[in-house]
């Protein structure tokens, strides 16, 4: 670039100068970790920011804010999604489960326990997303082999490199679940009850 020339870099040329005051927020309803909540949200608030900033549910992490790391993974209506790429207002009426809703009455979920036993994390920052993603994976039922689990968990980056331990933890939780299902199956024929007993 020529010295002395002035260069203007405009990040945002379309400032809505007419909207100098914040438009009113909208009331939505979300059921978060089993608790129904009525919330005032602005349209541009992502589900991730709502959880972390407005509701102090900071267990869900922001690693990239662009759907490129998986740290923000939560379950919405039972499915794993990136909460950073979701506007809260779009999920009006949905059920959201975060890492804070996984342990029941202080008892860790078998997957949480398995993560501890297998040392499936180091710094811990990607961990809630890894665990929520793995819950989603187990519910989907598509991945069973080691390679399939690795592939299906590839949307969750762990910079500490705990991947082999994450795989081992998921395999242990899957085995545990098969055992629970088998035992429950011998006692009862109600698969929905089993589902609930294993997956809060």
């Amino acid at each position: 670039m020529a010295a002395g020339a002035i260069m203007r870099v405009e990040q945002n040329t379309q400032a809505n100068t007419q909207t100098v005051s914040l438009p009113s927020s909208t009331k939505i309803t979300l059921t978060i970790n089993g608790v129904r909540r009525e919330l005032q949200v602005e349209p541009w608030t992502t589900l991730l920011d709502l959880l972390r900033l407005n509701l102090d549910l900071t267990g869900t992490k922001k690693g990239c804010d662009h759907g490129q790391c998986g740290a923000c993974t939560v379950l919405v209506d039972g499915k794993r999604i990136n909460s950073c790429m979701t506007l809260a207002i779009m999920k009006d009426g949905s059920e959201v489960m975060t890492i804070e809703g996984l342990a029941q009455n202080g008892a860790l979920h078998p997957l949480q326990q398995a993560f501890i036993e297998h040392d499936a994390f180091q710094c811990g920052y990607c961990t809630p997303g890894q665990i929520c993603s793995a819950i989603g994976l187990m519910r989907e039922g598509h991945a069973t082999t080691a390679d399939e689990i690795r592939e299906s968990m590839s949307g969750n980056i762990c910079r500490c490199g705990a991947y082999p331990n994450i795989l081992a933890a998921i395999q242990q939780a899957m085995a545990h679940r098969r055992n629970v299902d088998r035992v429950a199956g011998e006692r009862s024929v109600n698969p929905i009850a089993n589902e609930r007993s294993v997956n809060p």
Partner: peptide, 19 residues
Amino acid sequence: RVDGRAKVTGQAKYAGEYN
């Protein structure tokens, strides 16, 4: 890890998480 429970339950708070 002794901090394992805090990390797997989302209770471990990082620098940008003190509201």
